[in-house]
Design a protein around this nucleic acid. Structure first.
Lengths: 116, 116
DNA sequence: CACTATACCTTGGTATCCTAGGTTTAATAC
DNA sequence: GTATTAAACCTAGGATACCAAGGTATAGTG
């Protein structure tokens, strides 16, 4: 599944900060739990990706310090980031449907019609 | 954006020869038409991938010549290839559902994804 | 005889991700 | 008080999978 994750990293990250700003360490755990432990963003992939998205002006970062004294780097979408997210969501939807359509087995097996 | 397609190339190829043996040039067109023109396997990706799958003993190849005198290299699944296909199909299902579950929102529009 | 379609191939580059390390501070356990 | 875990960040270097761009050869078509 490692290979499959390629191409969805940016999407997952942008999506993870869409509702509210978040920070690296939490994004990891959020994606892990939201995916039911199926998708694990490793820090070695995540942090470089966050920096790249910041360079591309899709994310904006600010440092904060909690009451307990922990430093966190919060990321939020820029307007361009919001547009990129919408676009990547659409691309994902289109792509995953195309794959499903293309594969032979999913047709017979994946569709289940129930009456009543 | 065509980054998404990474990780599904082997799956698409193995699937394309699952029902009956096929050859490179036809696999390209089959995937293109089956995906409603959404997924285009380019030859620069396809042929090296076929050779790799053959080295891995997931595909077996044989040359044939048609009545018109065209040489074609037909590929078919080995038993290991069949198992690999089943596994990759399962992984794809798990992965795509995991992404769908993880994303907060989904919408669809029109994009074109290109493979190699 | 040029052009398109069929059919195969390879080299070299790049982007992307992961491994495997690392730092710092806070909380918890012993 | 010290060892360990958890929270939080980071990067260098390597692996590899894809892709662009070329190439060869034959058959059919205008």
């Amino acid at each position: 599944m490692d290979q499959l994750v390629k191409g969805t990293l940016d999407l997952l990250i942008l999506d993870a900060v869409a509702e509210a700003p978040s920070y690296g360490y939490r994004i990891c755990r959020d994606v892990l739990s939201r995916s039911a432990e199926a998708i694990e963003l490793r820090e070695g992939s995540l942090y470089p990706a966050l920096h790249k998205l910041e360079r591309q002006k899709l994310l904006k970062a600010r440092w904060e310090t909690t009451a307990e004294g922990r430093r966190r780097k919060y990321y939020q979408l820029t307007p361009a980031g919001r547009r990129a997210l919408d676009e990547k969501r659409e691309q994902w939807k289109l792509f995953s449907r195309a794959i499903d359509r293309t594969l032979h087995e999913l047709k017979a097996k994946g569709v289940r019609l129930v009456h009543g």
